[in-house]
Amino acid sequence: MFSPPGWPDFQLLSGARAFGAYTCDADGIHGMFYDPFASYAHQTHDLDATVHRELGMDELLELLAAGCMVVASVSKKIRRPQLTPPRRGGRLILATGLDDGHIVFRDPSGHTPDTTAAALPAEHFATFFAGRGISIDVSPTGPRRPPPHAAIRRVTS
């Protein structure tokens, strides 16, 4: 899960499960299912969440420039951006903004601090991006604002 400051992972996970965004069985946790997650974000946290089954890079950049965060489907190889991904999609990251042509994102499955909070040039990010996701309007002031990008390390390709 992607935890904004002050929102524990377990609280978000259990809340999202109640809406059907995740399912659990003996093999573990499965999901995230976009429509139930968008409903959860709206009904529980009063966030404007929109599911994008088709999301081009230009639209992704526009959403980020407008102050939205985007839960984006990317290749798991984004953790090792120097490698060419064999496919796009399969992992979710949270794109939090733009910084000088770079997409700033958080990857909760990152294996190092540099891959947990990172930035890639938009054209390189596109090689991992599956073209789908959920935009979340976080434009109101307050705790929903994305964190500053000062701790983000840019990854060069």
Rank of each mutant, 00 (worst) to 15 (best):
F125I: 04
P148Y: 10
I134S: 09
G110A: 11
L83M: 14
D114K: 15
A16P: 07
S157F: 11
G131M: 07
P121R: 14
A95C: 15
I93G: 04
A122W: 01
R17I: 15
H30D: 09
L12P: 00
S157T: 12
V155N: 02
G101N: 06
P8I: 03
G28K: 08
R79M: 13
A122P: 00
G89E: 14
T23S: 15
Q82K: 07
D114Q: 14
A66N: 13
H45I: 05
P108S: 15
Q11K: 09
T50L: 05
V138S: 00
G15M: 03
L94M: 15
H124N: 04
T84H: 09
A151W: 02
F128Q: 07
S73C: 12
P85N: 14
A118Q: 09
F125Q: 07
D25G: 13
E54M: 04
L47F: 05
R88L: 13
G6A: 05
I136E: 02
A38H: 03
H30P: 09
Q43C: 02
M57D: 03
D9Q: 08
V155R: 08
P86I: 08
R132Y: 08
H124W: 07
T44V: 06
T115P: 06
G31Q: 11
G142T: 02
K77R: 13
G89C: 13
S139L: 05
I78W: 09
G131D: 05
V104K: 11
G6I: 04
T112M: 11
P4S: 10
F33N: 06
F10A: 15
Y34K: 11
P8E: 11
H102R: 15
S75Y: 08
V74N: 08
M32P: 02
T50S: 06
H149A: 09
F105L: 14
D25N: 15
Y22S: 03
G101L: 02
P140S: 03
P121V: 01
W7R: 02
L120N: 06
V104Q: 12
P108Y: 10
A66G: 11
D48L: 03
A130I: 06
D48G: 01
Q43H: 05
A49P: 01
L47S: 00
A117R: 14
P146I: 10
R80L: 09
L83D: 15
P140I: 00
A117H: 15
S135E: 10
G15N: 00
F2V: 10
I152H: 01
M57I: 15
H30S: 14
G6R: 04
G89P: 01
R132T: 10
G97R: 01
I93C: 11
L64W: 10
V71R: 08
M1I: 10
G90P: 13
T115G: 05
P113W: 09
F10C: 09
L63E: 12
P143C: 01
P4A: 09
G67R: 01
G31I: 08
C68P: 02
D99W: 07
L94H: 05
S109A: 14
S39A: 11
T112G: 03
G101I: 02
D35L: 11
T50M: 03
L13M: 06
F129T: 10
K77F: 12
A119H: 01
C68T: 08
A16T: 09
W7Q: 08
A65Y: 01
A95M: 08
T156P: 00
T84G: 03
Q82L: 07
A49E: 00
V51E: 01
G56K: 06
T115R: 07
K76T: 12
S135D: 12
